[in-house]
Amino acid sequence: MTPFMSVIMLGGLACGMGLILLMPAIFEWLRPKDAQPIAIDNTWSRNDTVFAQNFRRLAGSWWGISAHVNSPHVGISAGQIVDTPVLAQNLTTGPDVWLKKEVWTRENLILGSNNQARALLSDGFADLGSGCAVERWVHAEQSVSLGQDTVVNARVTSCEHIHLERGCQTQLLYAPTIEWSGQSLPIPIDVPSHVRRWFRRRKISEAGRSWDVPRFGTLDETVFVNGDLILDNEADVDFSLVVRGNLYIRKGALIAGNLKAHGDLVVENSAVIGSLTCKGRLVVGAGSSIQGCLMGGSLVWLGDGVIIGRPDFLQAVSGQCVILTGKGVVHGRIHAVTKLIEVQR
């Protein structure tokens, strides 16, 4: 065999092998099996009642949309295990009942203590006793009340009002008004009296300010600060702040602007009209009022008497873990991204 023939044969072999490798690609090109555009849904992440809505649709197919409910009031006595879905006008259970499938009440739902359930939907109010455990979600058109130490694994939503007793845990809460009653505790971070600040460059002089904020590089209404920053008592800020360190806001401050800290952000009994964002812990001390969204990088801690948002101006609180202490109110949504929302025992 001449060298030329050898080269031709080797080349042919290589091309053949290459063609074999390309076969799946060629088939997919000529006879596409997966060519539809990617489905887009921009609304899923904001639809807090999506589970309840889907269940309503599903249950409609089980029972018929306008299912006639024969029993106006269903009572389940203590210790029973119910392993079928329940559709009732009203439902009341005794203690230690296990509802293995979904429950839908056309009016009100009252669960006794230490009940277990899969998912609960109520067209009226839903009242869960202490120590209940819900595997998935709870939704009520009116109010939802969770007794002490009740755990709902996924989410609790209501079109009106949610009340949580101490020890309650869940991952997402959504209602125009969310209230809790937990143990009142002092803030978990010590606010230092002095902080380190440094500047790489200073662009704007500080004349005429009643508070001592080191400023550099202002960008319209946003001020960027390097290092930690304390806004002293009675500070009055009317622009947004980005602090590349920890940010401490002392009592009585009034902030009209969005705040961000690369470290921890602590607000002691102050009013903020704007959002709070930080990469570390976000601590909102007792008596603070925030008219904006909150986002903490790790822990979000809300103290006694905190008010977030308004019923007509819903806001969101999110963090890896959210701790609710004392008595407070959030109008909108509370979301623990990876761990839990817990009312302090």
Partner: peptide, 17 residues
């Protein structure tokens, strides 16, 4: 643009950075 797209794109601007 889909129904909720503008809301999604606008939300991050509440972070002042």
């Amino acid at each position: 643009p889909g129904v909720g797209l503008l809301d999604s794109l606008v939300a991050p601007f509440m972070d002042p950075e």
